[in-house]
Nucleic acid binder design. Sequence first.
DNA 1: GTTCTAGAAC
DNA 2: GTTCTAGAAC
Length: 339
Amino acid sequence: MGNCFAPLSPGSSDSEGNPAASSSRRPQITTTTATNTGSPSEQRIRAESGSNTNQDQDQVPIQGRPERRKSRLNKHSRSSSILSLGKSININMGGGPPLDALRNYATLANPSQSLSASKLLLTTRNTIAVFDQYPKAKYHFLVLPRYPFTSQLNPDSKKSIVPLDTLNDLKSLLLKADRESREEILLALENTSREVEEMIRDEMLKTEGFEWKIDIGFHAIPSMKHVHLHVISDDRISPSLKTKKHHNSFRPDLGFFIDIMEVKRWIEDDSNMRERVDAMYDAKRLLDTPLTCHKCDEFMTNVPKLKTHLEKHFQEERATALNNIARHGRQRSSDEEMF
DNA sequence: GTTCTAGAAC
DNA sequence: GTTCTAGAAC
């Protein structure tokens, strides 16, 4: 527990699992300060594609996350922009919950042409990363497998290695996909999530001058169809975080949020997969866990108090990190803090 | 998933 | 009186 400053990580592999492709590359996001209000996910940010060496990757500029207006206005403007796209995307058009929004993203033939830069972060051959529409932290993105999901081992094949309904959620991916497909899909999701993580770290340094922890995992019970991985900064500071369930659903220690490393352990030894999936069906009750801070476990009587408390954590982490950088020229991990 | 709002909590 | 939550509606 306590503050968790992750040390700078080395260059990631490319987004399809080829570590040699980008030994020292780190995706760059630049921020303009002109609209420097709201969470950084909502600020105007732009990727510099010049250093991109991955031919598979169709990385688009990250720019123009427009400022939010009142929700009703937002819905109207969203509907009209959707209508102007080449392919009709049914997001909340019927007044019901937008259950199919992610599936519509995942099945686009050409996401970088169809999706605006305020929705799309990047795409690869088999994955897509988008802004969470209601971010629950300063940085919050979703990574999903595209359909058709084609095999890297067979570059010319356009055929999906799994049927669409296998990609409904994590449960169906774990139970319906064969071992090889399951591993290939999870690896692609993980690699893209690491790419997103690096972009976030760059942005953290630019906007706040230090980096902080990022969590990567699945929800046991997702609210939208199509399996998706959350990449979320652990500040949990956002206007869209409004309820105890929101906060509990991202607590890394409860069981509702399942870290990607945990899922990787599951597929290495899949003898208990049925029990693990059954436990996921039962996870809903975890959201009713009493409200406590995910960093220090202090009990919180209500959500507004939690939000004030989390702001305090963040300011303290920031002060400690900036102090360390001033004194030692680098950020130190929480382990080093103990000595 | 969000929004709305009745009634509980303060 | 106001603030906040939880469940229904979407």
